[in-house]
Amino acid sequence: MKVIFLQDVKGKGKKGEIKNVPDGYARNFLFKKGLAVEATPANLKELE
């Protein structure tokens, strides 16, 4: 799953980066803790 990092995550990505991460990791950790959002067209547009 492609995500946009909202904060630096040690060993995974830095704020503003767009990266592919495993689905479970994204849903169960990154999204729940507010560290990233899914890289949807709407979210990508907001990032610009």
Rank of each mutant, 00 (worst) to 15 (best):
A39F: 12
M1S: 04
E48Y: 13
N43H: 10
F29L: 07
Q7G: 05
I4K: 05
N43S: 08
K32I: 13
A42S: 12
P22S: 11
K32D: 06
I18Y: 04
V9N: 00
K19E: 02
E17L: 03
D8H: 09
F5V: 00
D23M: 15
L6N: 02
E46W: 15
K12D: 06
K14I: 09
V9Y: 04
K19Y: 07
V21M: 12
R27Y: 10
G24E: 14
K10G: 08
D23T: 14
F5M: 04
F29E: 08
M1F: 07
E46M: 14
F29S: 04
G16P: 00
G16L: 05
E38K: 08
A26T: 07
K19R: 12
M1Y: 07
G13Y: 14
G13S: 04
R27V: 11
V3R: 00
K15W: 04
K33D: 07
F31T: 03
L47V: 10
F29P: 02
L6K: 06
E48K: 09
A42M: 09
L44V: 11
T40V: 06
N43Q: 09
K32G: 06
K10M: 12
G13F: 13
D8S: 09
K10A: 13
D23Q: 14
N28I: 08
Q7S: 09
G11F: 08
L35M: 07
I18A: 04
V9W: 04
V9H: 02
L44H: 06
T40A: 05
P22R: 09
G24S: 15
K19W: 08
K2I: 14
K32Y: 08
K2D: 10
K33A: 11
F29G: 03
K10E: 14
N20S: 13
M1N: 03
F29K: 06
G11W: 09
A42I: 10
A36N: 00
M1I: 15
A26E: 07
E38A: 11
N20T: 15
G16V: 00
V37M: 11
G34P: 01
G24I: 12
A42V: 10
N28S: 10
G13D: 01
Y25A: 05
D8K: 04
E38N: 05
G13H: 10
E17N: 05
V37H: 04
V21A: 03
I18E: 03
D23I: 15
N28P: 00
V21K: 01
G34A: 07
N43I: 12
A39W: 12
L30G: 01
T40F: 06
K2Q: 12
K45V: 10
K19D: 03
M1E: 02
K14A: 09
D23K: 14
I18D: 00
G16Q: 02
L30W: 03
R27N: 07
K32E: 08
Y25D: 04
G13A: 11
V21H: 01
P22Y: 08
V21G: 01
K15M: 08
G34S: 08
V37A: 08
I18L: 08
D8V: 04
V37S: 04
L6H: 02
R27D: 03
G13L: 02
T40E: 05
D8I: 03
V21E: 03
L6F: 03
A39G: 04
L44S: 06
G13Q: 02
F29A: 05
A39V: 08
F31Q: 02
V3L: 03
L47A: 09
K10N: 10
G24F: 14
F31H: 01
A39R: 02
L35Y: 12
N43T: 11
E48W: 10
Y25I: 06
A42W: 08
G11E: 05
K10Q: 12
D8W: 09
K19P: 00
P41E: 14
L6A: 03
G24L: 13
K12F: 15
Y25F: 11
E48N: 12
G34Q: 09
E38T: 05
I18W: 03
G34H: 11
V9M: 04
G16T: 02
I4S: 01
P22D: 12
K14E: 06
L30E: 00
Q7W: 10
V9D: 01
V37N: 03
K12V: 15
Y25V: 06
L35V: 04
Y25K: 04
L44T: 07
V21F: 09
E17P: 00
N43E: 07
P41I: 13
E48I: 14
A26Q: 05
G11S: 06
K14G: 05
G34D: 06
K14W: 09
A26Y: 09
G11Q: 05
K45H: 11
I4Y: 10
P41K: 10
L6I: 10
Y25H: 04
E17D: 13
F31G: 01
G34V: 04
A39S: 05
K14T: 09
G24R: 14
T40G: 05
I18N: 02
I4Q: 03
T40K: 05
F31K: 02
